[in-house]
Design a protein around this nucleic acid. Sequence first.
DNA 1: GTGAAAGCGCTAACAA
DNA 2: TTGTTAGCGCTTTCAC
Lengths: 334, 334
Amino acid sequence: MAKPTVTSADVARLARVSQSAVSRTFTAGASVSQETRLRVTKAADELGYRPNALARSLISGKSGIIGVLVAYLDNQFYPVVIEKLSRSLQSKGYRVLLFMSDPGDQDAVVQDMLQYQVEGVVMASAHLSSHLAQRCMDNGIPVVLFNRYVISSPSNSVTSDNVEGGRLIGNFLVDGGHERISFIAGYEDSSTNRDREAGFYKGLAERGAVCHSRSVGAYTQEAAAAAARVLFAAPEKPDAIFVANDHMAFAVMDVIRNELHLNIPGDVSVVGYDDVPQASWGAYDLTTVEQPGEAMIDATVEILIDQIDGTSAKRRAAVLPARLIVRGSSKLPK
Amino acid sequence: MAKPTVTSADVARLARVSQSAVSRTFTAGASVSQETRLRVTKAADELGYRPNALARSLISGKSGIIGVLVAYLDNQFYPVVIEKLSRSLQSKGYRVLLFMSDPGDQDAVVQDMLQYQVEGVVMASAHLSSHLAQRCMDNGIPVVLFNRYVISSPSNSVTSDNVEGGRLIGNFLVDGGHERISFIAGYEDSSTNRDREAGFYKGLAERGAVCHSRSVGAYTQEAAAAAARVLFAAPEKPDAIFVANDHMAFAVMDVIRNELHLNIPGDVSVVGYDDVPQASWGAYDLTTVEQPGEAMIDATVEILIDQIDGTSAKRRAAVLPARLIVRGSSKLPK
DNA sequence: GTGAAAGCGCTAACAA
DNA sequence: TTGTTAGCGCTTTCAC
């Protein structure tokens, strides 16, 4: 098996031209005569030749690879992002080297990316030590933190306006006539949770309200379900809950309906965050805040490419607008 | 920016050893003295050196890269697969080069993979021309069709026993006392749909029943919803529906409940296929057949690695057992 | 426009 | 164990 790889030299021999002529034929803006090109492509087809991208990268210093690190794909927000990001990069001539982050040692993964000479790095829901982030910078490799940011980090970030999104929800729930508005947090150390929560409190305060009760769901469905049970075990049960993302909100809705036998939104309104595909599914019909995935991807790719090309090197923090999407899981303002 | 890359020669200079000594230090089972190794690692740390994986691959002929092609990620079955596959390959020392397939030209994507010298290819819900499949084989690059197979293809395949799964459902629905059992197909050209449908009919026949009505959902939610509307527009409405995968089944359930205002399973039982995470969510609680994701991934990785190592070269078609998972969306057999 | 030649950063014989 | 020497397959000057 494994018949020896066909190299440009083989093609050159068959086409009776120099090896460089073959290379030129397969290089975008190179200068080759019509005739040479023809002979080369003919020979190449015959032999089934394709240039070795690794060898090409080695000499050109451009691998055409973008490293993408993601922590988990069970929250549908991330698959959607991966798909769009991947398609966008592909259409721009880049390829995606995908890594699932190992909770323990995310730096090791990025080291691995670096060895593969990635030209840029996207970190979605994953953490990078400032030391490594700095090393990427030093090597001129742009890093984009997707859907999170770290103030002290030299990396770029792309997020949506989570503070504003939280604020919209705070306003909306008070306007809806709710009196005991509660919050189920995500992972408390994350910038998304901090911002959504801060904005939410601000939105409540603007209407003279405060948060009735609070619990933590850590962005997992199990923890979120448990958090919901805790909130409803209190003597004063919530009549509205803002859950820090849709993924948790689905679990919360299931508990409310199937375990507590309460009606949504009759007894309690539920609002999520992200607008993942399932939010619009009939069984949930979840009011939420849309993260503008398309725009976030576009911004990510633009930052990456600008910095790869050296057009711009300074750190950027793109914050895209969030939008409240009202559906049937919540009472409407009068 | 972009300070010149640190090479093994730089490290060698600083450590006052030969460049090969540096190479050996970073090569698994090479023979280096304790002292040399120490001096090299010290110098390497100082300079922040990591071997260039591309150069290494070029000479060793092993890129450590597996190409993965997937058509879409909105059906949660695939994100789950990607995550597991990626983690499994990472733990075995491989990396994943991920491509979203362009409906038009999937061959182009595989060509690109080949240029990057992938050592293996996984195709999930994507199609490869037999010509290219043959070329991969010729180059000794194993290809695994994941969750589908093509009889005439020289590629390996990993599927679950879709015929048996369909049969179990056919039996189950007749045993549940249903009298008008219908089917909503997926993409009719796919092996998964063909097998599930054939098994289903067989399962019905074993109990002396036949399919009441049939429509096509093409594995998309929009088409599936439309298919459901068609089936229920008939004078004799179904009292049970087998939908060829969970992803479509959710849309069908939404139509049944929210548009037709029928009760599940009171008025109609619904059964899906795949057991994606959402199937167990409270709002759907969908009876389905589990595809053994874990086992399918394990088989995929095993085939890949065996054939990369040359341990085994012959084509393999792994078919893993399917299991009926009974939940609340269907009436139970008496 | 074309070929010869020099290397990209590394590994793998080969002697020493 | 170590250094020296060839390349891996390719792009890119450099003369012609």
